[in-house]
């Protein structure tokens, strides 16, 4: 079905309108000054004629300054409206992209499921083939479920309604375990991922949430590698933070785009790797999860084709830091588990 195409004004058009609006206001300001000065002289002349006993010593400063302030105020309001509109337009564009991407991501497994159902309905299929198709159907159903879950979780994360299941873990052990799970999930050979360094401190984390973080980073490393995949994870720690550096040798990120990648709905087109599928929610979700753990995440890439490094900092868990624990559990009234997860 065809839809009606929306009329989108280009940024150049909007900037031109804005510049003309400003010129109009400046013109108005000039006119106001001109009118005031001209009329002041008339007032003085007429005043002298009609009432020579009245002496006008100085122009009426209140009216003059008041007029200028009014016009400047209107111009400022216009600038603010323009700025907000620009932000709004950018958001709308990102949202439209998100809808297009999510539709694609939902329809792909759905069409596969429909194809197999059609096949089962219309064709005689051998037992072995049936089993193979059922396996693929289950995989599609799992993919749909995962996608729907991620969308719902974003909404819960934003509304601070998520129930995190925090446990105390030995950072070194748990991070290695989580990365091993990601390797298994993405069916990567073990030799592809190298884990170095040590982080001999405890941390308080929701294992499932941190698994989502590393699954996302691994998925990106695979999707954005044009040749072979190679991942290096370096663990280190200081008395305050556990530091995890996750690097790949993929197509990298241009420096101008590095700031944008954690934005909601953000998708970056790369000429080295066009048409990479995704929703634009993955890294946004990663950042939200790390934020919930009172941590930080940043990205670094020397540029295109030079790989990407993510640096995650998670606070070291100290049993005496009651306030810290309370702040985490306060966000998590529905589910608070603070036992040793090892």
């Amino acid at each position: 079905m065809f839809t009606v195409r929306k009329k989108n004004h280009s940024p150049i058009f909007l900037i031109t309108v804005f510049v003309f609006a400003q010129l109009a206001w400046m013109g108005l300001l000039g006119l106001w000054i001109h009118w005031y000065v001209t009329n002041y002289l008339i007032f003085v002349k007429v005043g002298e004629k009609l009432a020579p006993q009245m002496v006008i010593d100085s122009p009426n400063v209140v009216i003059f300054v008041g007029g200028i302030l009014l016009i400047v105020g209107i111009a400022t309001i216009m600038s603010l409206i323009f700025r907000n509109l620009t932000v709004q337009m950018k958001l709308t564009r990102l949202y439209d992209n998100f809808i297009a991407n999510i539709t694609h991501e939902l329809k792909s497994p759905l069409s596969s499921l429909q194809l197999y159902l059609d096949t089962f309905r219309t064709k005689e299929i051998s037992y072995e083939k049936k089993q193979e198709f059922l396996k693929l159907m289950l995989k599609d159903a799992y993919r749909l479920n995962k996608l729907i879950d991620s969308i719902l979780e974003i909404s819960r994360l934003e509304q601070k309604r998520i129930a995190h299941d925090y446990h105390v873990h030995r950072a070194d052990d748990i991070i290695r375990k989580i990365i091993d799970n990601s390797i298994e999930r993405f069916r990567l050979p073990k030799s592809v991922v190298k884990i170095t360094g040590k982080a001999e401190f405890d941390c308080l984390i929701d294992k499932e949430a941190i698994q989502i973080v590393f699954d996302n980073l691994t998925d990106n490393a695979i999707k954005y590698s044009s040749n072979s995949v190679e991942i290096e994870v370096n663990l280190s720690a200081n008395p305050k933070n556990i530091i995890i550096e996750f690097s790949d040798i993929g197509i990298g990120i241009a420096s101008r785009d590095q700031k944008k990648i954690f934005n909601k709905f953000q998708r970056l087109e790369n000429r080295l790797m066009p048409s990479v599928k995704g929703t634009g929610l993955g890294l946004y979700r990663v950042r939200q999860i790390i934020k919930y753990h009172k941590g930080k995440i940043s990205v670094f890439s020397e540029g295109e084709n030079k790989g990407t490094s993510f640096r995650i900092e998670l606070p070291v868990y100290k049993p005496t830091r009651k306030k810290y624990l309370e702040s985490l559990s306060g966000r998590n009234k529905n589910k608070t588990v603070l036992a040793d997860g090892n």
Binding site: S112, L115, E132, F133, L136, K139
Partner: peptide, 8 residues
Amino acid sequence: EESLAVGL
């Protein structure tokens, strides 16, 4: 999409 391609 492997799943779809196999079915097709």
